[in-house]
Simulated scan of single mutants.
Amino acid sequence: MTGFSRESESFKWGTLSVEISSINHRYLDVSIRLPRELSFCEPSINDQVRSSLRRGKVRLSVDVTWPSDLLAVTVNSDILKNYYYQIQKIQEDLHISDPINIVSLLHLPGVTDSPSNRQDMEKEVEQALEDIVRKAVSSLQVMREKEGAHLEEDINTHLSSFHGFLNNIQNRWINARDEAMVETRERIKKILEENGPDLDEGRIAQEIALMADKWDISEELTRAESHIKKFQSILKSSESEGRKMDFLIQEMNREINTIGSKVTDSDIRWLVVEAKTALERIREQVQNVE
């Protein structure tokens, strides 16, 4: 489900801001953007988000504003001198007289370090960031729950439509079944009249049984009804069961497809199309449910 949240808090060592958003996705896809100096926090933040959310494409970004006394980096003079003397010696060996730009040496590994004060407070910063992320995720969940209520209402509407189409199919099938049985009897009677005693009655009985099984949809209707009841119980549950609902939609779709392949009655076939449309609308919404 979609949602957005932003939390910000100031401390004596700076200000932390966290933005988190989510859009619909079948699985949980988490992307975290942190300032380089807070990259050490990524594993704990990732675990925190994944333990709270189960579905959605989640994007979390963190910004930090440091006070001026924590922005200045420290220069390791011993390492800088070592670089300088090494380069000077190489220039002498190669007879190069160009002056050495000491500023250009500041980018070499080990010459500059993050402010020592900032390194000392890593634990404090990490704990503060986890607390703000927790608040942001909680606010995001509130927004997602509001959307979830609208989703539930919409899903229930389409589920009721599907149930209605299923009842209409069952009512129509009772009449169609009787009509098909009358037609079958008439055909058998005609065959018997034309072939007389030479016809194998056992084979006829076997063929009748096969025909009855082919167009009998009572089992499919019963299973579809059972899937609807299970789906309704999951909707009322407080647990996140999006994947179970997705599975049940697939099973209901399987039953309605089988019904469509078994019957030849045009009215029932049209009801099957309508029922599949209702299921597709439910399936689209279920993709958004945790």
Rank of each mutant, 00 (worst) to 15 (best):
T2F: 05
F4P: 01
S5C: 10
R6M: 07
S8H: 01
S10R: 04
K12V: 04
W13P: 06
W13Y: 12
G14Q: 02
T15H: 06
V18K: 08
Y27P: 01
Y27D: 10
D29W: 07
D29C: 08
I32T: 13
R36D: 14
L38V: 06
E42N: 04
P43E: 08
D47W: 00
R50I: 07
R50V: 09
S52D: 10
L53H: 08
K57E: 08
S61E: 13
D63K: 15
V64G: 10
P67C: 10
D69I: 14
L70A: 00
V73Q: 13
V75A: 12
V75E: 11
V75T: 13
N76W: 02
L80V: 06
Y83F: 08
Y84I: 02
Q86A: 10
Q88C: 05
I90E: 08
E92Y: 06
D93F: 04
D98F: 00
P99F: 06
N101Q: 09
I102Q: 12
L106I: 08
L108A: 07
G110L: 08
G110E: 09
T112P: 01
S114I: 10
D120A: 14
K123I: 07
E124F: 00
V125I: 09
E130Q: 12
D131T: 11
L140A: 04
L140D: 00
Q141A: 03
Q141F: 01
Q141E: 10
R144I: 03
E147G: 02
G148C: 14
G148W: 02
A149P: 01
L151K: 03
E152S: 14
E153H: 11
D154K: 04
S161F: 08
S161H: 15
F162M: 08
F162I: 09
F162W: 06
F165E: 12
F165R: 12
I169W: 03
R172C: 10
I174T: 11
N175T: 12
A180T: 10
M181T: 15
V182Y: 06
V182T: 13
E183Q: 15
E186H: 13
I188N: 02
I188D: 03
K189W: 00
I191F: 04
E194L: 14
N195S: 14
N195T: 12
D198R: 08
E201S: 08
E201M: 15
A205P: 02
Q206M: 13
I208F: 11
M211P: 01
M211C: 13
A212G: 07
K214W: 11
D216T: 15
E220Y: 07
A224Y: 07
H227F: 13
H227A: 05
K229I: 09
F231Y: 15
S233G: 05
I234G: 01
L235P: 09
L235W: 07
L235A: 11
K236D: 15
S237P: 03
E239Q: 15
R243K: 14
D246P: 04
L248A: 00
Q250S: 06
M252G: 05
I256Y: 02
T258A: 00
S261V: 01
S261Y: 02
V263C: 06
V263A: 04
V263K: 05
D265L: 14
D265C: 14
D267K: 05
I268G: 00
W270N: 15
L271G: 02
L271A: 04
V273R: 10
T277L: 12
T277W: 00
E290S: 10
